[in-house]
Simulated scan of single mutants.
Amino acid sequence: MSEEAKELKKELAKRKRMAIDIASEIHDIVEDSLWVDYNKMPGLAEKLVVAVQEANQFKAENGL
């Protein structure tokens, strides 16, 4: 595997990780503090959608 391909895969993993971190934050709110932090959910949901779209777009643009 070329160095460029490795870097692209590393960048894709980074982008996926960002989405997973947001999803994890949503999970924590649902599991632990829904009744207090429910107002954070719409903003987090929007961030999650954007993060997943960006990761999928990067993947498509780079043939991964």
Rank of each mutant, 00 (worst) to 15 (best):
A13V: 05
A60I: 10
M41Q: 12
L8K: 11
E4L: 06
I26A: 01
K16T: 09
I20T: 13
G63V: 03
S24G: 14
K14E: 14
S2I: 00
L8E: 05
I20L: 12
L64A: 00
L34I: 11
Y38I: 12
Y38R: 14
L64P: 03
E25K: 15
A23P: 00
S33I: 00
L12K: 01
K16V: 07
G43N: 11
W35N: 11
L8H: 06
I22K: 01
A45M: 08
N39F: 15
K10W: 03
Q53Y: 06
M18Q: 15
N56K: 14
D32G: 09
E11A: 12
E3V: 11
A13P: 04
G63A: 06
S2N: 08
L48I: 01
A55L: 00
E11P: 00
K10V: 01
L64R: 03
I29P: 06
L8G: 00
L64Q: 00
L34Y: 15
A45E: 13
N39L: 15
K40I: 05
K59V: 07
H27E: 10
E54L: 09
M41G: 15
R15M: 13
Q53W: 06
E46D: 07
R17Y: 12
K40F: 06
S2T: 04
R17M: 12
R17K: 15
D28N: 12
K10Q: 08
N56L: 14
E25Y: 08
M1W: 12
L12H: 03
E25D: 12
E54M: 07
R15Y: 04
S24N: 15
E11C: 02
K14Y: 11
G63W: 04
R17V: 03
K40A: 11
E4T: 08
L8I: 13
L34A: 11
E31T: 10
V50Q: 08
L8P: 06
V36F: 10
R17C: 10
M18G: 06
E61A: 14
A60K: 15
F58H: 01
M41D: 13
K10M: 04
